[in-house]
């Protein structure tokens, strides 16, 4: 129930409905919680509704955290 799966928008029917694909599976989804979607956008779909548009970039917090991890691992190698 908590599961949300990324889908790519293939077709927009109106401001409420779209056809989206996850791999080979195409499903009709509701898009009224995420306005302004375009074909090709990737959305997170939960219980048949897109809940957010996914962005590709990784946050700065994650980059900073990896720095910390590598620093710790550096200590191991010394």
């Amino acid at each position: 129930m908590c599961l949300a799966i990324p889908h790519r928008i293939i077709r927009l029917f109106d401001d409420k409905r779209a056809l989206a694909s996850a791999g080979a599976v195409e499903t009709e989804i509701r898009v009224d919680l995420v306005p302004g979607l375009e074909i090709g956008d990737v959305v997170l779909v939960h219980a048949g509704f897109a809940i957010e548009r996914l962005r590709e970039e990784q946050g700065q917090e994650i980059e900073a955290l990896w720095e910390e991890v590598r620093r710790m691992a550096g200590i191991v190698h010394e």
Binding site: L33, E52, L54, R55, E56, Q58, G59, E61, I62
Partner: peptide, 12 residues
């Protein structure tokens, strides 16, 4: 916030 691909500071 380590899930910035989907989670915005202000949410949906």
């Amino acid at each position: 916030s380590l899930y910035s691909q989907a989670v915005r500071e202000e949410g949906n």
